[in-house]
Computed example of a mutant assay.
Amino acid sequence: MADYEDNDDESRLFLDAVKDARPLKPSRLDQHPLPTPKPKPVPRQLLRDERQALADSLSDGYIPAHELESGEELLYLRDGHSPDILSKLRRGHWVVQAAIDLHGLVSDEARMYVAEFLAHCKKRGIRCVRIIHGKGLSSRNREPVLKHKLRNWLMQKDEVIAYAQARPQEGGSGAVIVLLKA
């Protein structure tokens, strides 16, 4: 019972303390809430331009000044780099950090996919990648169309130091291992 009496005393004290108080006038903020912030604009044209620049960075008509090729095996080493890099790459010295598969893609799709993949790897600091291009068993004339195009595309990219045909357990003649700049 004593608890109820204490509450009554406290209520009376409170009411006595606020008897001369007047309610506040409503402020402008109460009447009109703040507008929600507008979302940041999406630079659609910039994104389209960057995508087109990626597509334009790889050409099917590129004819390399020189390349190392032994039969059907793909080998390439950019000028100014040690031949040891190529032998280490062929032996699997570097760990493959990322890979893509071009199976089922037409040439233009594959070119864009490779360009975007290499740009992504460059941003993430990835050094060694595998690109599976296929052996061409499903294509017309049973020849690897993307294999030869990929060779030219990779030579056009400054971030590519070297590439070599993958070892048999990594895809053999249907894949290439690429070493990128740090």
Rank of each mutant, 00 (worst) to 15 (best):
H32R: 12
P33H: 05
L34H: 02
P35Y: 08
T36G: 07
P39M: 11
R44F: 13
L47C: 03
L47D: 11
L47V: 10
L47E: 11
L47Y: 13
R48W: 09
D49M: 14
D49G: 02
E50Q: 14
Q52I: 12
Q52N: 14
A53N: 08
A53K: 06
A55C: 01
S57I: 00
L58E: 09
G61W: 03
G61H: 15
Y62S: 01
P64T: 10
P64V: 01
H66D: 13
E69A: 10
S70I: 12
G71H: 07
G71C: 06
E73Y: 11
E73W: 13
L74M: 14
L75Y: 11
R78Y: 02
D79H: 06
D79A: 05
G80Q: 01
G80C: 00
S82L: 02
P83A: 07
L86A: 01
L89F: 09
L89C: 06
L89R: 03
R90Q: 15
R90W: 01
R91G: 01
G92E: 02
G92A: 04
H93L: 02
W94G: 00
V96W: 02
Q97S: 11
A98G: 09
A99P: 01
D101N: 15
L102R: 06
L102G: 05
H103T: 13
L105A: 06
V106N: 15
V106M: 13
S107W: 10
E109I: 02
A110G: 10
Y113L: 08
E116A: 13
F117R: 00
F117Q: 03
L118W: 03
L118I: 09
H120V: 04
K122T: 15
K122W: 12
K122A: 15
